[in-house]
Write a protein that binds this DNA or RNA. Structure first.
Lengths: 236, 236
DNA sequence: CAATTTCCTGGGGTTAACCCCAGTTGCGCC
DNA sequence: GGCGCAACTGGGGTTAACCCCAGGAAATTG
């Protein structure tokens, strides 16, 4: 019944390690400094519980979780994140098995919350940080929840692509792109030219701003999209 | 010769406090949980050294530094930040007296670096985190450094305003806005329609993306701009 | 199967955002 | 004064991004 902690910040690892060894009668606790290392350690140690920081070099915590759960579905995973970003919730939802035990805690959680979360996941329950709960709520709402098509379009305009550029990369017509963007704007409740004269907002930029504000996208996710979308310039 | 620590994260305060009391032969160390509290404490205690987290509720660390240095110019301020964002460097440069002792450390700094920085500022020197150094370098470069006019325009498009909306808020003509944006795009090296046919980028959105990537703007700064610019709808 | 919903397609508009170019103003500097 | 420089003004373009409307393919559902 060992525990694994994966975080690139040495200080955070120490904090967690001290905390857990003080409150959970002493288990062997191991550490990893990035996602790749976390997978290797997990497969070797087969821990009951794994703490995974979402933002880590080489391999993100989410991708590490995916691979670990693929090989060892019984593992309890506890995601750590600095931000209550909806992107991460989206991604995590696809990765965790429907009946698995997992948790999501923000880095600014109190010591008590972390221990509580660890205990919950160890006993097979889930523990979701309060700040995340309302985000999850929103991802269930049909009227405001983005489809993956809309999401894709959002990422593209956030990178600064034109309709034409998006169409080429996603193998769509420009009209299809505009159609996606139109419903995106509607879901983000951005007023258009028709609603009022003397237009205040550029929908495209406004969408990026609001989406960032709501944690639908964030910089590090966008940079992944950028490598995916922009480096394949040759293959039109 | 007291020390004041201002940070909204209790965990970070504890980390700093433990660290400083271990390495700097024991000084009285006080704490504050936000910028406003920091000012009050500083005026009362007149500390030799103040640690200020940049991102704090009620009042930012930069603004707190401004007021503290205004009343007590001899104080050594040590800014703490999670990110190496150029915005903060810009702002801090306006606030610190030219010959004052100050420091800038990132939150992921090692314990040794923090102690080193504290010692430096206490003895009247400056200490700048390595990761910040190149940012400062860039702010000195005439070709890529933004003027405050360009910067203003950048913040506006990042909020999603149209040319017309910007013009009205900044009391400019639309042409003036476009002129500012044009030079902004040039400094960010964003290709325009003229450079190549089959345009890949929407300059406006691309500018926001690149500026965020380079830390020229960030979400919390934009939200301040938003309250400043968007809530004054009535006063055309 | 009919009904609904979702998503893409297409025609045919308007306008905000960009393009170039030529001036003017105001500033500091030699 | 004459010079350069930065920033705004204005005319007169082009085009990407938006607008509405209608229709069709495909999956979902009762």
């Amino acid at each position: 019944m060992t525990i694994l902690i994966a975080d690139d910040e040495e200080r955070d690892r120490k904090w967690l390690k001290d905390l857990l060894s003080a409150h959970l009668d002493d288990q062997p606790i191991h550490e990893a400094a990035d996602g790749q290392e976390a997978i290797e350690q997990a497969l070797k140690l087969r821990p009951k519980l794994v703490f995974l920081d979402i933002k880590m070099p080489r391999l993100s915590g989410i991708k590490a979780a995916e691979q670990i759960l693929d090989k060892l579905p019984e593992t309890g995973v506890l995601m750590l994140s600095n931000f209550a970003d909806e992107v991460y919730v989206r991604q995590l939802w696809k990765v965790v098995p429907p009946n698995g035990a997992f948790g999501y805690i923000l880095k600014n959680a109190s010591n008590e919350q972390v221990v509580e979360a660890a205990r919950a996941v160890l006993s097979g329950d889930c523990w979701i940080h309060p700040g995340i709960a309302r985000v999850i709520q929103r991802t269930q709402n049909r009227a405001t929840n983005l489809t993956s098509a809309e999401y894709e379009a959002l990422a593209c305009i956030a990178l600064g692509l034109t309709d034409h550029g998006i169409a080429r990369r996603l193998y769509l017509t420009e009209k299809a792109v505009q159609s996606r963007l139109k419903s995106l704007y509607a879901k983000l409740a951005i007023p258009g030219r028709s609603e009022s004269h003397d237009t205040e907002f550029n929908q495209r930029c406004r969408a990026v701003y609001l989406a960032t504000r709501r944690g639908l996208i964030n910089q590090s996710e966008l940079e992944e999209w950028e490598t995916k979308l922009l480096e394949t310039k040759a293959g039109g």
